[in-house]
């Protein structure tokens, strides 16, 4: 029997305080665990649960109960902010997550700016805020994590990504103006999440990878705008997890300047080595979603134990889970972490 609540354990881990064992979470947003096995034949299912607060909170509770992940995580996609700021969304199906149908702007030059606090006016954003608040009230011991799309990913969901990536080099002034605006909107939305009641915010910025941007552009844009959001959330006393996709070899130095409370990375990153390279870093990750989907329980347990032995601070899947990931494998992961202490 655990002596401390999952929420306290996560908050302790994020604050760098000693914990009895690492928490095992799936933060929501891009990395959510709404797999088909959790939803099939049930009332709370996607794609309907992308739209309505009751279904959303119901599904988050189902996911938490069925998978063993020690948190509530919302939303179930990375499109809420982009939709609110003008993108057309295809909401996907039970098996397939939502995606941007078309970016509204062909270039940063054509960008149209909306008034402040535009995101929280979107009904899905409101549903996320409402659901997280309700979940937190009903189960105060379980941390409620609000997912936030990172600034570069949000911008690249609004401006055609190929043009956008070039314009980060070619039209720096306008690119910065767009990112400044998107960042402001994300900060407003993060504040709405905090006011609604979240314990932690997790920013995922899959466009802001070292592999795509390289160290210079990562430093000039990703570090600057991510830190601005992190600082604004910290000012409201809420901890922040940042997830960076892909290989981080090219951007290790830049990562040291990110101000989040924990850094979550992809499975190809050796977290032990990263911890060594960046002392004091609170690490999160990074169980291969490939193993989770295609491995068997034994393989999942071995991989989980490997992460436990590396003293990773917070255990989580390394990336977005496939919706066809077997529940048994996810349970094997969460159980291995829970039981890790007893066998160690």
């Amino acid at each position: 029997m655990d002596l401390i609540s999952p929420k306290q354990r996560l908050l302790d881990a994020l604050a760098g305080r000693p914990v009895d064992r690492p928490p095992v979470i799936c933060p929501g947003g891009m990395m959510n665990a709404a797999v088909v096995e959790v939803m099939a034949g049930r009332k709370h299912a996607l794609p309907a649960a992308h739209h309505k607060a009751e279904l959303m909170s119901g599904l988050a509770a189902d996911v938490c109960r069925e998978t063993g992940f020690e948190n509530f995580g919302l939303p179930f996609c990375l499109t809420v902010e982009a939709e609110a700021l003008g993108s057309g969304i295809d909401y996907g199906t039970l098996k397939c997550e939502p995606k941007i149908k078309a970016e509204p702007f062909a270039s940063v030059d054509q960008f149209e700016f909306m008034p402040k606090k535009a995101i929280e006016k979107n009904y899905r954003a409101r549903a996320v805020v409402e659901s997280l608040g309700a979940l937190r009230k009903s189960e105060p011991d379980v941390p409620a994590i609000g997912g936030l799309t990172g600034p570069l990913s949000a911008a690249a969901s609004l401006v055609d990504p190929m043009a956008f990536l070039k314009e980060l080099r070619k039209k720096k002034d306008v690119a910065h103006r767009v990112l400044d605006y998107v960042t402001g909107q994300l900060i407003d939305y993060a504040s709405a999440l905090v006011e609604g009641g979240v314990d932690v915010i997790c920013i995922a910025d899959p466009t802001a990878t070292g592999e795509i941007l390289g160290p210079k552009i990562f430093a000039e844009y990703a570090v600057v705008y991510l830190n601005r959001i992190i600082d604004a959330i910290h000012a409201q006393n809420v901890p922040v997890i940042v997830h960076i996709c892909g290989n981080v070899r090219a951007i290790r130095k830049e990562l040291a300047r990110l101000g989040g409370d924990a850094l979550s990375v992809d499975s190809m990153v050796n977290l032990k080595a990263l911890k060594y390279a960046l002392p004091g870093l609170t690490t999160m990750g990074n169980l291969s979603t490939y193993i989770l989907e295609f491995g068997d329980e034994g393989k999942v347990i071995r991989a989980s134990n490997g992460l436990l032995m590396q003293n990773i601070d917070i255990l989580a899947p390394a990336c977005g889970l496939s919706t066809s990931t077997p529940l048994a494998n996810i349970r094997a992961f969460t159980s291995a972490v829970r039981e890790g202490l007893a066998t160690a």
Partner: peptide, 14 residues
């Protein structure tokens, strides 16, 4: 060789 990244490669292609 990770000297160039996606923005650079796209601009070279242009």
């Amino acid at each position: 060789e990770e000297e160039y990244f996606v923005p650079e490669l796209l601009l070279c292609a242009d």
